[in-house]
Simulated scan of single mutants.
Amino acid sequence: MVDFGTVYLVATGAALLLALGVGLRVLVGIFRDGRERSRKRREGEIDRYTEDPVYDRDPPDPDADGGTPSTCPQCGAENESEFTYCHECAAPLGPGG
């Protein structure tokens, strides 16, 4: 008779070994890529520090849309031009502000 506990342990062990093998291949690839990049930096093929287009940008200008602060018609609070509702009383600011 087949013991299902033993079959479960064997199947789980095989799946874990397979996952370990795949994970090791990925880690070896990452390690090789890092060594290759280090070699290229040492030999001057690539710059040591390259500009990152995401993090090297200037912060956005809050007044870039040319809008002016709008006043809430209900409570009179000053709101940013991009707000649709008042930050104080949550009243709609409307299309004109």
Rank of each mutant, 00 (worst) to 15 (best):
C86M: 02
D3K: 08
D47E: 15
E80M: 12
I30C: 08
L18A: 15
G67Y: 02
P69T: 09
G21R: 02
C72R: 00
Q74A: 06
A19L: 06
E80L: 12
V54S: 12
A90I: 06
G94A: 09
D33G: 13
G23F: 00
L20Q: 12
T71V: 08
T50N: 09
T71G: 04
G94H: 04
A64S: 13
M1K: 00
N79K: 02
D58A: 14
R41Y: 03
L93S: 03
R42V: 13
A77C: 07
G5I: 05
C86P: 00
S38I: 03
C75W: 01
L18F: 02
G29W: 02
I46Q: 09
R42A: 15
D63R: 15
C72S: 04
C89D: 14
Y55Q: 15
R32C: 04
G97D: 07
A14F: 04
L27E: 10
R57H: 05
E36K: 13
G44F: 04
T84A: 13
F83G: 00
V26C: 04
G13V: 01
M1W: 00
Y85C: 06
P69V: 09
F4C: 04
P92W: 02
M1Q: 05
D52V: 04
P95T: 10
T12Q: 13
D61L: 04
D65M: 09
C89V: 09
Y85L: 10
G94C: 06
E36M: 09
V7K: 11
L20W: 05
V26H: 04
T84L: 12
S81W: 10
